[in-house]
């Protein structure tokens, strides 16, 4: 057994960090779009809008029922053969699209559960003082649903950051893709992949700290 090449690992960190922004940008874009889409899907599910509700159920079923990697290959390699205008799609766009659709299916269900979980009597109380449905949602239901949904949504965001590593299979040189290239050049596979693993780990831990801080803040009203 040989000794780990620490100098190589330390030297690799700044090289890999150059690709961190792309990883985070893909995750941030995916999360922002997934939040919008999943809120829409959740509202359709809560209000049981005819037609759309069935379509939403099918959407959620498909994107939860198939692997993310399969979905990414489908968007990047498969769809352009059917739809000509998609031949221009690059790996980054396909990744963001895949992350958005895949994660919004999961997030829609947790947002729906959070909305439905807000005590029904508060809804009646808000209506009884003459609030409109919009005011009721904005002032009473959504702030409380947010508190319930944030921990799970943060978990999905963390998952999504890790899932961006699949973009390297679409030829995107992000954190994982860059590591792969460096490792192939140096043949120090263990050093390279343990370094990138630690980088992902640190990012996730930082987010977990932020998550705990956010939860404490959101729970202020509920401490006895």
């Amino acid at each position: 057994m040989r000794v780990l090449d620490f100098d190589y690992m330390l030297g690799l960190v700044p090289v890999l960090l150059r690709y961190l922004p792309l990883t985070l940008q893909m995750a941030a874009a995916g999360m922002a779009l997934a939040l919008i889409l999943s809120c829409g899907l959740a509202v359709i599910r809560v209000l049981k809008i005819p037609g759309l509700n069935a379509a939403t159920l099918l959407f959620i079923s498909f994107f939860r029922g198939t692997p993310l990697l399969v979905q990414l290959f489908l968007f990047y390699y498969g769809l352009p053969q059917l739809l000509a205008f998609l031949t221009q799609i690059n790996g980054i766009t396909a990744t963001i699209m895949g992350l958005t659709l895949h994660f919004s299916a999961y997030m829609a269900e947790s947002i729906r559960a959070a909305i439905v979980g807000v005590d029904r009597s508060q809804t009646e109380a808000a209506l009884s003082i003459g609030m409109t449905n919009g005011q009721l949602m904005r002032r009473i239901v959504l702030p409380q649903a947010t508190r319930v949904a944030v921990p799970t949504l943060m978990n999905y965001f963390i998952d999504m950051i890790k899932a961006t590593s699949l973009a390297f299979t679409l030829g995107v040189t992000e954190l994982m893709g860059a590591t792969q290239k460096e490792a192939a050049g140096s043949f120090l596979y263990f050093e390279a992949f343990i370094t990138v693993a630690i980088l992902y780990w640190i990012i996730v831990e930082l987010l977990a700290w932020f998550q705990r801080w956010l939860e404490l803040r959101l729970n202020r009203a509920y401490r006895r």
Partner: peptide, 22 residues
């Protein structure tokens, strides 16, 4: 309906206070 609600106030058996408000 909004007008009727604004002219009647309701006190609930289970209080139904807004949990996110002081």
């Amino acid at each position: 309906i909004l007008a009727a609600r604004r002219r009647t106030a309701f006190v609930f058996q289970n209080y139904a206070l807004f949990a996110n408000k002081t």
